[in-house]
Design a protein around this nucleic acid. Structure first.
Lengths: 237, 237
DNA sequence: TTTTCATCATTTCTCGATATTTTCCTTGTG
DNA sequence: CACAAGGAAAATATCGAGAAATGATGAAAA
């Protein structure tokens, strides 16, 4: 439904399909490794060393790293190679507030413009997320929950007509995801995550934009407030 | 002043210095050519054909094109090469409204937080812009005006602490710039551009955030409202 | 005439090799 | 002992050639 082919193709939106090129495959693989913390912030990415891990040539890996630069997951300095982007509490705060602003704007528009099909999508996404939340308590179905949580948030703002807002949000979502993975995740579980989602869902379905955006803002802030960075992973130059 | 080295390097912000690598040089050169309309929307970019124009090898040019993909100035589809991104009125409207939202937010923060040094910078930038506007009426010092106009807008929001907002704005600014170049530019000159800038400057210096953001919003909307797309350059699939 | 299919030319994508730059270590000097 | 200079080692950035994919052309069948 919300993957209609865009007039211009912003990269992140095309990611449902299989990777068609090796560059694309390496890009995604690297991105997952950075977001999920298998590559540490600040770590040097020596092309000669890691090209074997991804089974590609130097130029190809280089291009993938260049692409990650645009997502601010990798930094490159002139003639001195690539590194995993550093992290900092300031950056985290910035990401959070910018995301709150954009996502609330998008949600407001989505609530105003969403039709019946949107309601149906949203209900389905909420249902799947609920199931995943139940399972999350038991085993470690974290991956599935992560996926469905992302989709729930995407569907919430799906009826917002602005491609640019959605594009920026998807970049910020990846950033936030990384911080979540890097955190020690102590306070997780004490939160009543499902209640937050349920209230948000109810408000959206009731077309109560004020309540919904308020809940969403607090939800995003809480999610990232529970992040506390390990000293070891904090930016060092 | 506002080019302090960032904790993480978002690409656009590092562009004051000379290009250090061939990729960087090709990237900038291509970007100028797209923004200034020498490469038309939808045009196919065959690597073998144009690599000589930029004096680089295939892989290097490829990487530069990949980078432009992230700015949505170039689109790439799977195994079918690169094209200059198409344009459309919907996209233009989206860019404009997203930019208004982000730039007004940034301006509000900048007005709240800007110190004396910021005021000085702003005054200087306004002065330079004024001079350029005078010259614009005479000859075609369009390039200089374009530069100083950009800097004036940058300085206005320089005291906003959010790197992410500034990053997104710089992407949108490039997009808007392209549309301005593509337009037939009929109504330009009828506008009292300098008056708009002057009022905006006064409001910012007076720390009147409400008035300033209102003026800025109208200013951005007017700038892009005067754009009318040539049929020939409109998106075709 | 229209559709289908095979073949071929064009273009994209990828890799290994090479030249250039940076980094690190050793050595000499104030 | 600190510090600068020089050189070796490592890593980066780049190129040109080869493998894979596209879509264009034209012949055969419906």
């Amino acid at each position: 439904m919300f993957h209609t082919s865009p007039p211009y193709a912003i990269r992140q939106e095309n990611e449902v399909a299989e990777p068609k090129t090796l560059v694309e495959a390496a890009y995604r693989s690297l991105r997952r490794n950075i977001i999920e913390g298998r590559l540490s912030p600040g770590e040097k990415l020596r092309i000669e060393h890691i090209k074997n891990d991804y089974g590609v040539g130097g130029a190809t890996l280089r291009e993938a790293l260049s692409l990650l630069t645009s997502d601010a997951l990798v930094v490159s300095q002139g003639q001195r190679g690539f590194r995993v982007a550093p992290v900092s509490l300031e950056d985290l705060a910035d990401i959070t507030e910018t995301r709150v602003m954009l996502e609330c704007t998008a949600l407001r528009q989505s609530i105003a413009l969403g039709d019946e099909a949107w309601e149906a999508e949203l209900t389905a996404a909420f249902h799947r997320l609920t199931r995943a939340e139940e399972r999350l308590a038991e085993g470690n179905n974290r991956e599935q929950w992560e996926e469905r949580n992302r989709i729930f948030h995407e569907v919430l703002i799906a009826a917002c007509p602005s491609r640019w807002i959605k594009h920026f949000l998807s970049i910020l979502y990846h950033q936030a995801e990384r911080y979540r993975h890097l955190s020690l995740r102590r306070s997780e579980g004490t939160r009543r995550l499902h209640d937050e989602h349920a209230a948000l869902f109810e408000a959206a379905m009731a077309r109560d934009a004020d309540t919904a955006t308020h809940l969403l803002g607090e939800h995003i802030r809480l999610t990232l407030q529970s992040v506390s960075l390990d000293n070891a992973s904090t930016a060092s130059h």
